[in-house]
Design a protein around this nucleic acid. Structure first.
Lengths: 154, 154
DNA sequence: TTGAATCCCATAAAATACCATGTTATACCA
DNA sequence: TGGTATAACATGGTATTTTATGGGATTCAA
């Protein structure tokens, strides 16, 4: 098992009528070290799909268990929201997964999708939407230089 | 044996006159690694059925022992409520379990049920009720972005 | 013997694995 | 450095397998 797992780069792939997309080969290379499946869910904040390794979600499950009470409403709501939406996607020998209607609709994806690396996670966007979003993020970054010093959004 | 056990996704299945429901195949795949049975009980907080692996309840038993006094009323009540209500459900060769009247009634389930993944657990809802509940949770999440920072509700 | 619970079989639909091909990227050699 | 051979990849199509679910048979107990 490798020590470094980073989803990187931005690649565009076609989505066919059945919802099939090739996972970028770089991504597959990462995933294959552990399994042949990824987990995808609707982003809570953007019109896009998010993907990650199952172990990433497993870690999240453990964090939730440790941070909240077993019987709490917070734990209930969080786990319903996250795991109720997430789904395993196994890719076949040609490296494709089949995205669901729900996910495609949320991300407004029809015949083409762009994979955007995010380190431990990645996102899948409608190409036009991503173009706009990337421009927006870059503008923001120019105005307000990013910082890791304080967690303003905590 | 796999390292990661997460119940995910939301799937709707029919419930027939005998109370039979197919356990979603993804769930079965998880369960099969350990056994051929799950444990179900009435949710303490919602009109739905909760299910998990027996080992999850075993962990809960340990947590209760550690968090409360052996002679406390709290421990008494909790253990009565949960373990008094829980019951094992073995699924047959076609992957179905037969839910009891008590459970179905509590969840107001008649001819159709929706399975909602919760990570280590899952829930079974009446579809209409779940639709409303999911909408409620999403509204909440948008208002108060979830955080794992502090245990506000502990 | 009758009612209830459990198990097994059949089928249609849906999900998934496999095969084939054109294209692009990569490696190799002059 | 340029040209060619090789390999990898994305993608369209097809075949096979799973899965959900209805119905019937069998078992067990009262």
């Amino acid at each position: 098992m490798r020590k470094i797992f980073l989803f990187m780069d931005t690649v565009v792939n076609k989505v066919d009528a059945k919802g099939r997309v090739s996972l970028p080969s770089d991504y597959r290379a990462i995933v294959k070290e552990l399994s042949t499946e990824i987990v995808c869910y609707r982003s809570l904040s953007s019109p896009c799909i998010e993907g990650c390794l199952e172990e990433t979600l497993d870690k999240l499950a453990t964090d939730i268990e440790n941070a909240t009470d077993f019987f709490s409403e917070t734990q209930d709501n969080l786990t319903n929201l996250i795991f109720g939406d997430a789904k395993r996607f196994v890719f076949d020998s040609t490296g494709r997964i089949v995205l669901t209607e729900k996910l495609l609709k949320h991300a407004q994806i029809t015949d083409s999708a762009v994979f955007v690396g995010k380190g431990r996670k990645f996102q899948i966007w409608n190409p036009q939407n991503w173009e706009k979003e990337e421009a927006r993020i870059r503008r923001e970054a120019l105005k307000n230089r990013p910082t890791l010093k304080a967690k303003e959004d905590a």
